[in-house]
Write a protein that binds this DNA or RNA. Structure first.
Lengths: 150, 150
DNA sequence: TTGGTTGGTAGCATGTTGCAACCGTCGTGA
DNA sequence: TCACGACGGTTGCAACATGCTACCAACCAA
């Protein structure tokens, strides 16, 4: 049903990523998972999403290998949803979205939640796109090498 | 209509970013814009999206300050859509999604489009989340500092 | 001036979302 | 051990968004 190729399952990795995540709710679920949410109810309260939608999203995230369902850590019979390694690899995506939001949608003095380095409590360094040899790259410094060109 | 708060317009920058972009199509439009697409028809052919949807998405992206509509560069009476500085700031988001896709959705030998450093033609360095003092951070090394905690 | 391209709009069928009500299981306090 | 509330869903339905197709008005080249 959700399955393959909502978008062209093209050779473009961006499209496949987008397809794999599914929708915005899924991305916010992943964000909450990074922030420590594990239980159905935690996600539901945090997001305010309808339960049937949450059920469906959790299922596709598990099916897609982003989350996995494990026995609850408190010993109860319930289950919890935790990020797989593949899910954890979405970290830069979430951080990038967060930094973009911080820069463009908040006034200088407007409060917002902040992602900090646990050791020192400082906010993070801005993400940088770097070349193989470490030069900082702007969009104009890059080009898409299409498959058909190869 | 698209307007505010499809999601809680919470204090979370991720949610605001997601809200500002709108939907997946919009993100793929931005990706194409980075790849050099400028004209309505270019986006339409590249994405295969219905024209009414594309019209709506371009409009909201322009309204949101991600794209701007400028006179066509070839002197014709048509218009083109180009990234604003705010739109260009989405670069790390696109790169992060691309790298995630490359790592998890392609076999080692499977061909895919590639983003390369224009100067040298090499692929890019993987994005890293760094602390203020340059240590590399994993998700577990970070914490969300909630507004209410402040 | 005619015909094709560009950049849309309009109408309609279908799919997806969100809401609310319901329900079985689990856990806890008495 | 029993009752009651929390947890984690499922179901049905109404509303909304999506995508398809047809249409159309500029623009531009011959």
């Amino acid at each position: 049903m959700v399955a393959r190729t909502r978008f062209d399952d093209s050779e473009c990795p961006v499209a496949r990523s987008v397809d794999a995540i599914g929708d915005w709710w899924s991305l916010l679920i992943v964000r909450d998972a990074f922030d420590g949410s594990r239980r159905f109810g935690e996600f539901q309260r945090s997001l305010g999403v309808a339960k049937n939608i949450l059920t469906a999203r959790l299922r596709t995230l598990v099916a897609g290998g982003v989350l996995e369902s494990v026995p609850a850590s408190d010993g109860s019979a319930y289950r919890e949803y935790v990020l797989t390694p593949k899910g954890k690899a979405l970290f830069p995506v979430i951080v990038a979205l967060r930094q973009w939001g911080e820069q463009h949608f908040f006034d200088a003095d407007e409060p917002h939640s902040e992602l900090v380095d646990r050791r020192q409590g400082h906010s993070l360094r801005a993400l940088e796109v770097l070349s193989a040899d470490g030069r900082r790259l702007n969009p104009d410094d890059t080009a898409v090498h299409k498959v058909s060109d190869q």
